[in-house]
C-alpha cells in the first residue's frame, strides 16, 4: 500500500523534487550515516561521560563554587588557579607528584630491564620467577598498602628488623617527612617493576639470537653487546611501559588513601590527587579542587602528549 503511494508520488513530482529526494536517499545510503549506529552511540556516551565531565570540571574551576548550593556562573575568572599556584601546599604537592613520577618511572624501568635480562638468559625456572615478579601487580592497592603499612612499622615491621640486624638505628619510614615519599615510591616499585620486566622480556625475546652470536664472534663483551645492540632495540617497549607507569604514578592516590584510611597522607607524601580530594570532600571547596584537577589533567596530558606525538610520527596513529 505504502509502496504504491510512493510510486504514484514520484511519477507526478517535478524534477526538483526528484533531485531533493534522491539527494536525501544518497545521503542516507552513505557510509557515514549507515555506520552511525556503530560509532554514534559510543561517541555520545563518551562525550557525556568523559568529555562532558572534563568540561563541567573546567567550568566549575572558573567560578567560586563552595559549600552546598549551586555554582554561580556570572563571574568567571582564574582566581582559583592563582590561589592554588600561590599556595605552599599546592607547590609541595606538585613537587612530590613530579618526584614520584620521575623517580618511580625511572627506577621501575631500570630494575625491570635488569630483571628481564637476567630471565632472558634462560636460567632455571625462569617462567616461575616471572610469575613471582609479576604477582604483586595483580594485587589491589588496598591490599599492598596495608601490607606495606605493617612492613614499615617502626617497632615491629620487617624492614626495621633487617635494618637493626645490620646494626643501624631503626628508621621511621612513614613518620619522617624526608623519607616517607621514598618509602612510598619503594612500595610502588615493588608492585610495578614486575610489569616492566614482562614488557622488556617480550621485547628481548623478539630479538633474534643471531645478533648475540654475531656480537660474540666480533669479540664484543656482554655489557657492550647489551648497551650497544640490544637495549637500543627496546625503545618501543620502554616508551609504552613508561607511559603506563607514569599514569599509575598519577593515580597513586589509591595507594596513599589505603595506607592511612584518610585524605591526609603521611607527611611529605601529599600529591595533587590527595590534595584535590581533601579540599573537595572535606571542605566543600569545589571550585578550588576543580582548578587543581584541571592542572592535574594538564600534567597527565603533558605525559601522554609526547607519546601520542611519537606514535603519530611512527605512523602508528
Amino acid at each position: 500500500m505504502a509502496t504504491h503511494d510512493n510510486t504514484e508520488h514520484v511519477s507526478d513530482a517535478t524534477d526538483e523534487a526528484v533531485g531533493w529526494e534522491s539527494k536525501l536517499q544518497y545521503f542516507l545510503n552513505s557510509d557515514f550515516v549507515r555506520s552511525a549506529p556503530y560509532w554514534g552511540i559510543p561517541f555520545v556516551l563518551m562525550s557525556i561521560a568523559v568529555y562532558g565531565g572534563i568540561g563541567y570540571n573546567f567550568a566549575i574551576s572558573f567560578t567560586d563554587y563552595e559549600g552546598l548550593g549551586t555554582p554561580d556562573y556570572s563571574v568567571l575568572d582564574l582566581e582559583m588557579y592563582a590561589q592554588a599556584l600561590s599556595s605552599d601546599a599546592f607547590i609541595a604537592a606538585a613537587q612530590n607528584n613530579l618526584v614520584l613520577l620521575v623517580g618511580f618511572t625511572t627506577i621501575c624501568l631500570v630494575l625491570g630491564l635488569f630483571l628481564a635480562i637476567l630471565l632472558d638468559h634462560g636460567i632455571r625456572f625462569s617462567e616461575k620467577f616471572q610469575t613471582v615478579y609479576l604477582l604483586p601487580m595483580s594485587l589491589s592497592f588496598v591490599v599492598t598498602a596495608q601490607l606495606w603499612l605493617w612492613m614499615f612499622n617502626v617497632e615491629s615491621g620487617i624492614l626495621n628488623l633487617v635494618v637493626t640486624t645490620l646494626g643501624f638505628n631503626p628508621v621511621d619510614w612513614l613518620g619522617n617527612p624526608s623519607i616517607a615519599l621514598g618509602a612510598v615510591i619503594f612500595a610502588l616499585i615493588w608492585q610495578f617493576s614486575g610489569y616492566t620486566m614482562v614488557v622488556y622480556l617480550a621485547g628481548l625475546q623478539s630479538i633474534p639470537d643471531d645478533q648475540f652470536e654475531a656480537a660474540r664472534v666480533d669479540g664484543a663483551s656482554i655489557t657492550r653487546t647489551y648497551l650497544r645492540i640490544i637495549v637500543p632495540q627496546l625503545k618501543e617497549a620502554s616508551v609504552s611501559a613508561a607511559v603506563v607507569l607514569m599514569v599509575f604514578a598519577l593515580k597513586a592516590f589509591t595507594f596513599l588513601y589505603a595506607l592511612v584510611g584518610r585524605y591526609r597522607p603521611p607527611n611529605g607524601t601529599d600529591i595533587l590527587a590527595t590534595l584535590m580530594v581533601r579540599r573537595a570532600f572535606k571542605f566543600g571547596e569545589w571550585a578550588y579542587s576543580a582548578a587543581i584537577a584541571t592542572m592535574l589533567l594538564i600534567m597527565a596530558l603533558g605525559v601522554i602528549g609526547p607519546y601520542l606525538y611519537y606514535q603519530y610520527k611512527q605512523g602508528s596513529l
Binding site: 603499612l149 614499615f152 617502626v154 617497632e155 615491621g157 631503626p170 621511621d172 612513614l174 613518620g175 603521611p266
Partner: peptide
C-alpha cells in the same frame, strides 16, 4: 611515646 607513633591509630 612509642617509636611507631607516627604510623599507628
Amino acid at each position: 611515646i612509642t617509636a611507631d607513633a607516627s604510623s599507628i591509630s
